[in-house]
């Protein structure tokens, strides 16, 4: 039940409580309660919109940054990761298997700004052993949504 509600909202955060109630066959009051609780429990973190910024401005620079770190004896990767996560420029942060440890998705206003973040902020964090920065040349798909060329359903006016 809770999972149903979360899936519906994850797909479209603007689905109304009333609609969700009908879709799941649950009283409106109960859906409201469930959502309130999920927000309180931080199951629902935020309601956001996917914007295709590329179409209206070009002063956004995205970079994917691989970071090698020396894990701390007690805290492992978690404490370094939580420090890096504090930076507003860091839009996503993952611990990954493979040749590096942390994977960052960073957004800045210019390449300069992203470069500064790497050299001024990231490199100075204790435990960071090395970084590899990949600037994003083009974004094709964001959070499951294709940005361009997704022309939607091409239905012809047929009958039957």
């Amino acid at each position: 039940m809770l999972k149903d509600v979360l899936r519906i909202l994850e797909n479209d955060a603007r689905t109304t409580t009333k609609q969700i109630a009908t879709m799941t066959g649950t009283p409106v009051a109960e859906v409201t309660k469930l959502i309130k609780q999920a927000e309180k429990d931080k199951l629902i973190l935020k309601y956001k919109t996917i914007v295709n910024w590329d179409r209206i401005e070009d002063d956004q620079v995205w970079a994917i940054i691989e970071v090698k770190v020396a894990p701390e004896p007690e805290a492992g990767f978690d404490s370094i990761a939580s420090r890096i996560a504090q930076f507003g420029q860091v839009r996503s942060l993952y611990l990954a298997s493979g040749t590096y440890d942390l994977l960052l998705v960073v957004m800045g206003k210019s390449e300069r700004q992203v470069a500064d973040f790497v050299s001024e902020n990231l490199a100075h964090i204790e435990g960071v052993k090395g970084t590899v920065t990949h600037f994003v040349l083009k974004r094709y798909k964001v959070d499951g949504e294709i940005l361009e060329g997704g022309e939607g359903v091409k239905r012809q006016p047929v009958i039957l």
């Binding site: 359903v153 239905r155 006016p157 047929v158 009958i159």
Partner: peptide, 21 residues
């Protein structure tokens, strides 16, 4: 349905096929 095709802004609940690709 010929009529339908000639009018702008119609919401069609007429088509009997999935709306998924």
């Amino acid at each position: 349905f010929d009529l339908l095709a000639s009018i702008e802004g119609v919401i069609s609940l007429g088509v009997g096929e999935p709306d998924f690709a």
